[in-house]
Amino acid sequence: MLKIHVDMDKCQHYGQCVFEAPTVFALNDDDKLEYHATADDSELENVERAIDVCPMQAIAFAK
């Protein structure tokens, strides 16, 4: 199980992560980021990519 944390002070809701891991990240109707704090291990590569492409470097794996 992956544990994911987004620093919502940093996140500017650019949605770049959504393209990399759409089952984990989404923008809601107000264009704000919503995400699942846990994800299946099979999402590892996608979440790693989301971490890389986040302009604000707001995403990390939680301990």
Partner: peptide
Amino acid sequence: IGMRSKIMGYR
């Protein structure tokens, strides 16, 4: 400007 989901929809 703004309208993130709309812009992303065109990507």
